[in-house]
């Protein structure tokens, strides 16, 4: 019975590692699971063999299988299955998979302290959205500015970042990395407006190396739209998603 317990514990721990990944659609890589399982099995064995008695109980079925002549048939079956399973597992491990190399990139790298665009030098540490103040001072004017920002967005950004600002534009699926969503709390909600300004003005090629600038399809918007338009589109992407820019702490 002890052996059965052991098997059940192993299965439970396997499901524990495997299931959440499957349910959330982000499976843990099998190599990692293999490693976790190794430790799990060792732990379970340690616990179950902590006393002489429990060890004996655990091994009793195995022992009896090997010694008891009446269990010859089971023994022979087990003796055939175990090597086959070992062979198959080994094959699964070493067979070539041709999986693409993993390309790690940092989504939100540290920004430079100054940038040179539109023929000027901007100090990103001191840079603020010149229109933000109207949110309190003149709400009517602010609304108008947001709308103008929306027009910029729906001329230049929606086909990648999505009609719903969810990163799923008509052509989004053709890029790698995917266009980032502005909905949710992981992207612009974490950023200061000056950072977003830098990202929009300099695009993919403006990124530092750790963010794979050679892969990003984000255009260099300095070439297409004005500084004012960038500030307005920033107002819009925060307003539409209900996100608030991070402020200086």
């Amino acid at each position: 019975m002890r052996l059965l317990q052991f098997v059940i514990w192993v299965i439970i721990s396997y499901l524990f590692f495997k299931l959440p990944g499957i349910l959330m659609g982000k499976p843990i890589p099998s190599s990692l699971i293999l490693m976790y399982m190794f430790f799990a099995v060792v732990m379970i064995l340690l616990v179950m063999t902590s006393t002489e008695k429990s060890t004996r109980e655990l091994l009793a079925p195995i022992k009896s299988m090997l010694e008891d002549p009446s269990k010859k048939l089971i023994r022979n079956v087990v003796f055939v299955i175990v090597p086959i399973v070992a062979g198959v597992i080994t094959y699964e491990q070493i067979k070539p998979t041709y999986e693409a190399p993993v390309e790690l990139r940092s989504t939100h790298p540290a920004p430079p302290s100054t940038i040179k665009i539109y023929g000027k030098t901007y100090d990103l540490l001191a840079l603020e959205n010149p229109y933000r103040k109207y949110e309190k001072e003149d709400p009517e004017k602010f609304k108008e500015l947001v709308r103008e920002g929306g027009e910029v967005y729906f001329k230049h950004c929606f086909y990648c970042h999505g009609d719903k600002l969810d990163g799923k534009g008509h052509y989004g699926q053709g890029f790698n990395p995917l266009p980032l969503p502005f909905q949710g709390k992981d992207t612009i909600a974490q950023l200061q407006e000056s950072y977003v300004f830098w990202r929009i003005a300099t695009g993919g090629p403006g990124l530092p190396k750790e963010s794979t600038p050679w892969l990003s399809a984000m255009p260099i918007w300095e070439d297409f739209i004005t500084e004012e338009e960038i500030w307005k589109v920033i107002l819009f992407i925060y307003d539409y998603t209900g996100n608030v820019p991070r402020s200086w702490e």
Binding site: P83, G87, T90, Y91
Partner: peptide, 12 residues
Amino acid sequence: IYIVPIAVAVVV
């Protein structure tokens, strides 16, 4: 890639 698994099975 076939020989190694067979060898493992034999060892077991």
